[in-house]
Design a protein around this nucleic acid. Structure first.
Lengths: 150, 150
DNA sequence: ATACTATTTGCGACAATGTCGCATCTGAGA
DNA sequence: TCTCAGATGCGACATTGTCGCAAATAGTAT
């Protein structure tokens, strides 16, 4: 189950030392899908290496983030106040969270790129990545009581 | 110095009890401008009421957020891991933070609305607000060493 | 295969940020 | 002025993340 080969290769190319623990965290990341919390990774990782330490997970996440291989989200704190991580894909996308049921959806749209272009041309800031989190009500929750808007 | 009348009125309309402490927090919010941390509000508020408690600040912020009167940001954790608050204006805007110097800029753009419309039409989620945080390098930082892209 | 060494890990202590229960206090309506 | 639902202050606690340092180890050289 050699998961996340993409990340493994990226790390090799950058001469990052591949420790057992880092492989474990990468595995856990690959298995866990999007929107994982650090603590989930710790728990998942400990299935493979029971001695895996909390600090190691955090340090690995920080390292991956520094290399631009993962993104850190907080999904509007709809649930708790921790952070979520996901492998960084080809392009940025929008996270949409329902304020009532907490469900999170993603949306890929060319408008995101248009926005980044606009940022560059108006401010001169050269964007490296974007985090777009939309607070919303999902169709189900909005349907149930469409009348009371607030 | 009756600041933030807009917020005061909004709270009155909603029959929220206007305590001395809440006025103090609103004042502190108005004085402090955008991107304030809870701790800053506490310190600023204590100038007006030395007994103002941390829990009260947090509870007031939670209340304001629930009423949609302020937004909570984390500005990509460019500096620390706390949260920032700002009074909610007429329309959502983009926060752009430089990963090197930490400077934060804002950008208002009609593209934001276009993005929300797209969210609605593609996912059925009805957006109530958006938080857009762009990671970038500001012109100064990018200029200094434009060669080393990484 | 073994030795070497810079890096990484585990550990435990700590820091920062936020939350909660409960006794007391108070804003605002009657 | 009286009243009481709701807000506050306080202190204890929870969660999330960080750090220093001794021990372990990946990757390289021998």
């Amino acid at each position: 189950m050699a998961s996340a080969p993409h990340l493994l290769n990226a790390l090799k190319e950058r001469n990052v030392r591949l420790t057992r623990q880092r492989r474990v965290v990468l595995d856990a990341l690959a298995v866990s899908g999007n929107h994982v919390r650090a603590e989930d990774l710790l728990r998942e990782g400990r299935k493979r290496d029971p001695n895996l330490d909390r600090a190691t997970v955090y340090r690995t996440l920080a390292m991956l983030k520094e290399h631009g291989l993962i993104d850190e989200l907080d999904l509007l704190h709809l649930d708790g106040r921790g952070h979520y991580y996901e492998m960084r894909g080809h392009q940025d996308h929008v996270h949409i969270g329902c304020t009532e049921c907490g469900r999170v959806t993603e949306l890929h749209s060319p408008i995101v790129q248009a926005l980044l272009d606009e940022v560059a041309s108006h401010t001169g800031f050269r964007a490296t990545s974007a985090r777009i989190e939309v607070q919303a009500r999902c169709p189900e929750c909005a349907g149930g009581n469409a009348r009371e808007q607030r």
